[in-house]
């Protein structure tokens, strides 16, 4: 069995309000899994044997710092992805609209990443700040429009679902506001990417994501991390054993 990339704790996933959202998320997440490997957690009996030694594998931590590190991990992923996009031949030859959107997304995600790095380091110290992760985007063809935009859509949709699901886990009002400042920008991204990639004029806020109450998904960290792990994009192992669950 391949060693887990991201190890997540077991959480109570039976929150009725988010069941539909979670299914939706996983369905989309499935698009990204094409050809990618396995994952993570609870999939073998020797779970205990895989507990990292202290100092060996970074754990996101507990409380608000844990949630901030979780967001930092997602922002690192997005920033690394768009950095690759701007180095790829699809972007270089894209039309002005797509080029502009992707360049802006690159800037925004790098800024989000650097914000979390500074904020977590300032609040909790470097030792409790998630290190720089390494990524493997070999499953994405950066010369191919569909491959790039489909991955971008999944990452942006995932970001919105993740922030919406993490908000209630924060206890410091300032952090909630900061997360709110970022999630709406992620939603603006998701809308724009969906608008240029999908042909349906309603896809910017499509029925495939938004439910009958007009609500976007809200997905818990364990589910998000499992799905992110399933993409195979994250090379650096880390654990999420102490995140708040709201349970």
């Amino acid at each position: 069995m391949k060693k887990p990339l991201i190890k997540v704790q077991k959480t109570n996933l039976s929150h009725p309000k988010t069941n539909n959202s979670r299914r939706q998320f996983l369905k989309m997440g499935g698009l990204a899994v094409a050809g990618s490997s396995l994952l993570l957690y609870g999939c073998s009996d020797d779970d205990d044997d895989m507990e990292p030694m202290p100092g060996e594998v970074f754990d996101l931590g507990s409380g608000d710092v844990g949630i901030l590190n979780y967001a930092y991990a997602l922002e690192q992923l997005e920033a690394a992805f768009y950095t690759n996009v701007l180095d790829g031949s699809y972007w270089m030859n894209a039309n002005a609209e797509e080029k502009k959107i992707l360049e802006d997304l690159y800037k925004h995600e790098v800024i989000h990443r650097e914000f979390f790095k500074a904020a977590i380091t300032g609040a909790a110290g470097a030792a409790k700040t998630l290190p720089e992760l390494e990524f493997d985007f070999s499953s994405v063809n950066f010369g191919d429009r569909d491959s790039v935009l489909q991955t971008a859509q999944i990452l942006e949709d995932t970001g919105v679902s993740a922030y919406n699901g993490a908000g209630s886990l924060l206890v410091t009002p300032d952090y909630l506001t900061l997360a709110g400042k970022i999630v709406s920008v992620e939603a603006r991204h998701a809308s724009a990417i969906r608008s240029i990639y999908l042909s349906d004029d309603t896809a910017f806020a499509g029925d495939d994501v938004i439910d009958a109450n007009g609500l976007d998904p809200a997905v818990d960290p364990a589910t998000i991390l499992a799905a992110v792990g399933s993409t195979g994009f994250v090379k650096t192992a880390f654990t999420a054993n102490n995140l708040p669950t709201g349970a």
Partner: peptide, 22 residues
Amino acid sequence: MGTPYLTPALQIHSVEAKHASE
């Protein structure tokens, strides 16, 4: 914060942002 209405409000908030972008 601390109410069951925070998450639904966030779920509406991001939909408004998608609308705004479009």
